[in-house]
Amino acid sequence: MTEHDDRYAVPATAAIPADAPMFNRAAWIRILPFAAYLLFIVIGDVSERLGVRPDALRWLYPAKIALVALLLALFWRRYHELSRFRLAPSTAAIALAAGVAVFVLWISLDAGWMVVGAPAGYDPRVDGRIAWLLVAIRIAGAALVVPIMEELFWRSFLMRWVDDPDFESVEPSQPSTKSFVITVLLFGFEHNLWLAGIVAGAAYSLLYMRHRNLWSPILAHAVTNGLLGVWVVRTGSWSYW
């Protein structure tokens, strides 16, 4: 059953003036948490090049997740698409299944040509032993914080903004083929496993468009990341982190 949200059923608006800003306030509160996340990736890369020890760099992830979570909390009341968690049982089941399927594909689509670069991953071992606090923070961040931050940016904002800078006026089921393809490709190449990223981006985008509810791709994304975290720890495949 398709869930419809009347908040998106808005009448057509007048053309946006040529001197209007590229991003409005609604856009910025979806961009900033994502930008903060990317900033820490840059900080980590620069620090590594400057010779900062890997064991010190491990703590950048908790700091990154803390900052992103803080920004999400500050803007939470303005994310109207997250105001209530409401998914019909059938919708939740589809999202859960999609999350599992994406996880299986993620660890399978790893041939050499499907990978960009040589990711070092996130190794939570200290003196050869797993630091379970770091593991807990990593899995919690990946399964609880990252899905919300990324789905707000990629699906709620960017996929609709490509079609209309007044992106909130675009109904979730109506993004154009152009916006779908652009978003999926960019999401894919955000990851070292670019093909797996494209598959994941397509799955999450289709869930959003089909269910018209951002919680659907968030749930699927959370399942994928949570399962991936458990699998990484069990197998020691740190490069997948």
Rank of each mutant, 00 (worst) to 15 (best):
F167H: 03
Y61R: 05
F153P: 00
Y79K: 15
S179Y: 00
L96C: 08
W59Y: 05
Y79R: 15
W231K: 03
V232L: 11
A140G: 04
A97T: 06
A35I: 04
G51I: 09
Y8K: 11
A222P: 00
A200S: 08
V146R: 02
W59G: 03
A98F: 12
V116K: 14
A196M: 00
I182Y: 00
L38N: 08
F85P: 00
F75I: 14
S237N: 09
E48F: 15
N225C: 03
L109F: 11
I41N: 12
A200R: 02
R25W: 13
S239R: 06
A63G: 03
Y37N: 11
W154D: 12
W231I: 02
V115T: 10
G201S: 09
W161A: 02
Y122G: 01
A63M: 07
R212C: 12
W113M: 08
T224H: 06
L133Q: 12
P124L: 13
S176L: 01
I16S: 13
L32M: 03
T177L: 13
D19W: 09
I137F: 05
A196H: 01
V170D: 01
R212A: 11
L195C: 01
L70G: 06
V100N: 02
V184M: 11
V232N: 08
L109H: 05
R84N: 10
R30G: 07
W194E: 02
I137M: 07
A63D: 05
K64Y: 12
V181K: 04
G44P: 06
Q174I: 15
S239Q: 07
M149Q: 02
I16N: 11
G117T: 09
E81T: 12
G141C: 07
P17V: 08
D19V: 10
A73P: 04
L32N: 00
F153S: 03
W241K: 12
I29D: 09
L74A: 10
W106R: 01
I198H: 05
V68Y: 05
Y79H: 12
I130C: 14
T224D: 04
A18L: 14
R125F: 13
R212K: 14
A56N: 15
F103S: 00
L96T: 05
P11N: 10
D163E: 01
L133C: 12
R210W: 12
V100I: 03
R125H: 10
I29S: 11
A136F: 15
D164G: 09
F85K: 02
M159G: 08
V100E: 00
G44V: 13
H191P: 00
E171V: 14
E3S: 13
P89H: 01
A202N: 06
R30V: 06
L219T: 09
A142V: 01
V10Y: 12
G229S: 07
L32T: 03
Y208H: 09
M114Y: 11
R58A: 12
P17G: 06
G112E: 10
V102M: 00
N24M: 06
S237W: 07
G99L: 03
K64G: 11
L71N: 03
S108M: 10
G229M: 09
R49V: 14
H191M: 02
A88D: 05
I218W: 03
T2Y: 15
I16L: 14
M1K: 10
F40P: 06
S156H: 10
I139S: 01
W76H: 15
M22H: 10
G201Y: 06
